[in-house]
Amino acid sequence: MGTLSYTATVSLDGYAADADGDFQWSAPDDEAFQFHIDRMAVVSTEVLGRNTYLLMRYWDSEPADGSWGAAEHEFARRWHSIEHVVVSSTLTRDDLASERDRLVPGLGLAELEKIVADAAGEVEIFGPTTASAAIRAGMVRDFRFFVVPKVVGGGLRALPDGAQLDVRLAEHQIFGNGIAYLHYEPR
C-alpha cells in the first residue's frame, strides 16, 4: 500500500504559476534539482494532469544540442521508471509517451484511493488542479513545498480554496539560492 503526497513549487505568495500561466521563475538551481532527484527514489507513481504531463514530456529524450549533464540524465532515468497516471479528457492513448503511462478521463476520490492502495511506494499527485479534490478530502499525507523567494501577485494557487488543513512541519531545508523546502504532515 502506498501513501499520497502533494509536491509544488510555489511563489512566496502561494502561487504555482503567475497570472499569465508562467512558472519559469520556479526553476530549481543545481542543489534543489539534485534534491528532487534524490526525493524521487521513494516515488512509485505520479498522478498528473494534461498540462503537467505534456510539460514533463521534455524528459522523454535529450535535446538535440546534447545539453543534459549527469543530473538531467539521472532525473530522466528515474522519471521513466515511475508509473504515470495522466488525468485528461482530451488526450488519447496515442498522446502518451510510454505503455507504462495510464490515461484516465477523470479522477474521482475512489479511483485515487485505489491507485494509492495498489502502489508499491509513494504516489505523488502533481499539479494544484489535479490535487485539489484530494487535498480538500484530507487524503494527502505529505505536503512538500519548494517556496521560491518571489512574489508574483496572482495566478494559479498552489492550494485550493476551501481547503482546511492542520499540519505540522516534518522537515525543512534552505537552498543556497534562497528556495525553502518545507515538508508538512497532517497532525
Rank of each mutant, 00 (worst) to 15 (best):
P186M: 05
R57Q: 15
M40K: 12
I82L: 01
I125N: 05
G108Q: 05
E62F: 08
R168P: 00
A41H: 10
G153H: 04
T45W: 04
M40A: 15
D30L: 12
P28I: 09
L165G: 05
F126P: 02
G69L: 08
E171N: 13
A158K: 12
Q24Y: 03
Y53D: 04
S88G: 04
F33D: 06
A41R: 14
L96H: 03
A119W: 00
L91Q: 04
I37V: 15
W68S: 10
D101K: 01
A158G: 15
H73D: 02
A8D: 03
I115L: 01
F126R: 08
D60W: 06
H80P: 02
G2H: 08
L169C: 08
S98E: 01
E122K: 07
P105R: 11
V147D: 03
L156T: 14
G176Q: 15
L109S: 11
A120G: 14
E72V: 11
E74Y: 00
L156V: 15
H84N: 09
A134E: 04
M139K: 10
E62D: 13
Y53W: 09
D142K: 15
Q24S: 13
F146H: 12
G14H: 12
V104A: 08
P28C: 10
W25L: 03
D20I: 03
A71N: 12
D60K: 02
L12G: 01
S5C: 09
G14K: 09
E171D: 15
F145S: 03
V123K: 06
D161K: 05
L103A: 02
S89C: 09
Y181P: 00
V10K: 05
P63I: 11
A180C: 11
